[in-house]
Write a protein that binds this DNA or RNA. Structure first.
Lengths: 324, 324
DNA sequence: ATTAGGTTCTGACATTTGTCAAAACGGTGG
DNA sequence: CCACCGTTTTGACAAATGTCAGAACCTAAT
């Protein structure tokens, strides 16, 4: 009676097959590792290995439903106060601001796919928030999705510049990516104007105008915030805009505490979506968290740039504690 | 120093919030129950309860990726042999036929959502297989999906009659449901013809013609198979069709070993999709398993009714072991 | 044959998770 | 104020899962 070996390399069963079988028995049929070990006639330790392999290979998807987060009490209040269609509030979990940032990025990554549908054209801004979010998106494929870079590229080589953000989001969502092949800011408004008329750039700006959804973060108006460190604005630029009442930055554009555009010399030299166009999208997803972002978030929310918000509990409380 | 209570009903945190928080920390942040217990300042046993509640409430979704099943060696061979676009082969797991049936139903439930896209019109047949499958679909919402009942309702009250199958599939997928408000089989062809001309029925038959995808099982030609027990065909009907070469049943219609229609007196009296229309769909998902279904499956596959197949390893082997 | 080098598997132990009866709690009505 | 009742939490124990060093196994080269 020659017993057929179950060793992975032997037998008629191909290598990964037994791994899948173990995963199925465990996650779908609800057997425990002992029962699986008996059925497959291997040791329980081996079953542990199979299951680990299955997880590593991404055979198992564990996702958290979005409802409990959006239904969160704070989410409801945020929607009411800032006229949002939905908000996604992540628990603080008692961790540091660093951890909270991470969690919000993951939360946004978790939520985003369910906000998109086939044929959407999603504009993507830039920044550490957007970049980290993109990292955490579980790859899915959304039919005929187009991802469009909303802001020109950064002069300084930067880990989370606009083209990298949009490319990563597109990659994770299996989408086509329209990059904006121009610097975010040019030395003179004339050069910017010329560039805007270039056929290639014009087509890309056209794509920006016609995207229906937007994903963006906000920047604060400090001298150490990304708007300066990325080389988009000089310290003088920043001072000038702050003097005019700037309270925050969306897609590289300055806005005041009411969210209204603060226009100035830099604007003419920039290539990318402007405040008016951003406000016109049918969906605007704002991802932001942190004490330092509070004012800028408030400005962006008041300005009506966002229809959807992802943030943390403590940030949500800060927003709600401010007088309207 | 009044310590704020974390008891669920107290504090500013709403009841389900702490459950969600625990779930997040566990499934997303990968903390273990002890760490979570410390953070939330409750006992570990409580964390266990929270996590259980989160699972019960469906906050956590665990699904298996479809690739390992569709990439399976047997799946590839099935595609090649029967000209399928994809096959989903479930492990046998050493269990009984009963367990295999169950597993195939769950596998189909797992796979189906990823086969559908927005605006699809999915025709759904009937039978125990389809019914059990529907039970196991994890509720999702597919935009503008329409589910259409392919076969009329059963005269005998039946747990898995056509209208129940389509309604359940529709419910789970958040789809609109077009039911066929007519019996599957009538006493005379004249009555059937009259009924087909009724405006309501005609519109429903129209919907059947225009659906682009179909989900169906096969029936075998035994006297104890559902085609007889459900009251669709009498024993005499069955004998007659078998004598004409019938080897299986799809959507209540008889086919021979090549999958070609076997037409007879019963056909004129039936209301529902016919063999030609079924063959014309852009996608046909056949879900079937079991030794007794082998011949019928073979017939359906040869007849080109299916573009996608869900079955078990052992059933797959049986199919492949048969001479083409 | 035998040996070397890699991979896969296993047994013994460590850690994590689940269970359950009893205790603590919060509201309610005497 | 207290006794009651249903719910939530907890501690102690039981079960399940994870870890890791070494055994078993395969392959290919000597």
């Amino acid at each position: 009676m020659p017993s057929t070996s179950v060793r992975r390399s032997a037998g008629q069963i191909s290598g990964e097959d037994i791994v899948v079988e173990a995963a199925w028995l465990y996650y779908h049929d609800g057997l425990n590792q002992n029962e699986i070990a008996n059925r497959l006639d291997v040791s329980r330790a081996t079953v542990v290995n199979y299951l680990q392999e299955a997880r590593e290979r991404g055979f198992i998807n564990i996702t958290l439903a979005s409802e409990p987060f959006t239904n969160h009490r704070l989410a409801g209040e945020l929607c009411a106060r800032f006229d949002l269609r939905a908000a996604y509030v992540l628990p603080d979990g008692g961790g540091s601001e660093r951890e909270q940032f991470e969690r919000v990025a993951r939360g946004a990554a978790n939520w985003l796919p369910s906000l998109l549908e086939a044929q959407d054209r999603l504009g993507v801004a830039w920044g550490k928030t957007i970049h980290d979010m993109a990292e955490h998106i579980e790859p899915v494929s959304i039919a005929d999705l187009e991802v469009i870079q909303l802001v020109g590229s950064m002069a300084t080589p930067y880990g989370f510049s606009a083209e990298i953000c949009s490319a990563n989001v597109a990659r994770k969502l299996g989408a086509n990516c329209v990059n904006l092949h121009a610097p975010a800011v040019l030395s003179t408004s004339e050069i910017a104007a010329t560039l805007r008329k270039e056929a290639i750039i014009a087509a890309q700006l056209e794509a920006i105008e016609h995207c229906n959804k937007a994903l963006f973060a906000v920047g604060s108006c400090n001298h150490d915030s990304h708007i300066v460190t990325s080389g988009l604005a000089s310290h003088d630029d920043l001072d000038w805009y702050v003097a005019q009442g700037a309270a925050g930055v969306v897609c590289g554009r300055f806005i005041d505490t009411h969210g209204d555009p603060v226009r100035g010399p830099l604007d003419e030299r920039m290539i990318g979506i402007d405040q008016t166009a951003l406000r016109g999208k049918t969906m605007g997803v704002l991802v932001s968290v942190g004490r330092d972002k509070a004012n800028a978030m408030l400005a962006a929310l008041r300005g009506g740039y966002a229809t959807h918000l992802v943030t943390s509990q403590s940030s949500a409380r800060r927003l709600l504690d401010t007088r309207p």
